[in-house]
């Protein structure tokens, strides 16, 4: 194809998206669109898969059966979300094995928030409430994104996600209304998860390099700073309601903006964790790669079994 033909196709492509038409797997798309989507969707899938680890840590130690079934169901949902997203990514012409390879070699990233440790039961509350809360704010606009398989996967994800946030907040309510030690545990979890949750919504707008392109392709509807403000405005009253204090001395209601002003975010910490120097980066990768390697014989055995069954069937048919 000549450069001019490609330019022309790109123009038509952009117009289709501007008209709110969806792009489906076999449609022509600019190479950059394909690559950006593979990067974002797989990063999203990897986050769901790695996201199971910090919570999986507490399943066996859940304080009651009610909490245990809920946490188990939530972690299972995350596996499901990872699978929806991986198969949606595969429609762009990359194999599952390549995707795993990228995760396991560190070539692909996952959400930095999962590189923090889950030290107490209250962390299950804080993660559901804050981390899933921030994730929902990020994800809801994606239900309307331009790539059909991604949008459909996200609709499914978003439908299931709201239980996650509620179960987390319920854990926090219970602890905040419990003994002084329990309340302290809840406050400590909020202290540790608050700032990483704000960072989860991405670098500030002036540092975010992909925003303009992502807006055009509807991978983004609002900027990182707008999403962060929305998260803060909706979460602070929820903390107030259960008597917990958001760990930000500069947090203050701004009557004029009808929004909260908040303190400076430590972006050095964010970039350190992104670059692999967070408290749990090594541990997470070790757990993930280990699980994959230890599962190899199971995957091979399943294929061998399937082959044997198939051969037996063919023999009987003769």
């Amino acid at each position: 194809m000549s450069e001019e033909q490609i330019k022309n196709l790109e123009k038509q492509f952009d117009e289709r998206i501007a008209r709110d038409e969806k792009i489906e797997p076999k449609d022509w798309m600019p190479e950059k669109y394909r690559k950006t989507h593979i990067r974002q969707m797989s990063q999203h899938a990897h986050s769901e898969i790695i996201g199971m680890l910090p919570e999986g840590n507490w399943i066996t130690r859940a304080p009651s059966l009610r909490r245990k079934v809920a946490l188990l169901a939530k972690v299972q949902d995350e596996a499901g979300h990872g699978l929806y997203l991986y198969s949606a990514t595969e429609t762009l012409g990359i194999s599952r094995d390549e995707l795993y390879e990228q995760l396991h070699t560190g070539k692909a990233k996952y959400s930095s928030i999962f590189n923090y440790p889950t030290l107490t039961w209250a962390d299950m509350g804080a993660i559901g409430w804050l981390v899933d809360g921030a994730a929902i704010i990020n994800q809801v606009p994606l239900c309307n994104t331009s790539y059909g398989p991604y949008a459909r996967a996200m609709i499914r994800v978003c439908k299931e996600e709201s239980f996650h946030q509620r179960q987390g907040y319920e854990i926090m309510i219970k602890l905040a209304n419990g003994t002084p030690e329990q309340k302290e545990m809840a406050q400590d979890a909020l202290n540790r998860w608050w700032w990483p949750s704000l960072m989860m919504l991405g670098p500030t707008d002036d540092k975010s390099v992909h925003t303009a392109q992502s807006m055009k392709w509807k991978l983004k509807r609002k900027t990182n700073d707008e999403l962060r403000q929305q998260f803060i405005d909706q979460t602070v009253p929820q903390a107030d309601l259960i008597g917990l204090t958001v760990p930000d001395p500069d947090l203050k209601w701004n009557e004029e903006r009808q929004s909260y002003d908040f303190g400076a975010i430590d972006w050095d910490e964010f970039w350190q964790v992104v670059k692999g120097h967070g408290p749990m980066n090594k541990e997470r990768m070790k757990a993930r790669v280990g699980a994959w390697e230890r599962g190899e014989w199971v995957r091979d055995a399943a294929m061998a079994h399937a082959k044997k069954k198939q051969e037996r069937k063919e023999k009987q048919a003769v």
């Binding site: 995957r299 399943a302 079994h305």
Partner: peptide, 22 residues
């Protein structure tokens, strides 16, 4: 949607877990 499985039977079982949890 789609998923990976060794054979049809496993695909059915996995589909049950991945796509019909609710």
């Amino acid at each position: 949607g789609s998923l990976h499985a060794a054979d049809a039977e496993m695909a059915l079982e996995n589909a049950r877990d991945v796509y019909t949890r609710r």
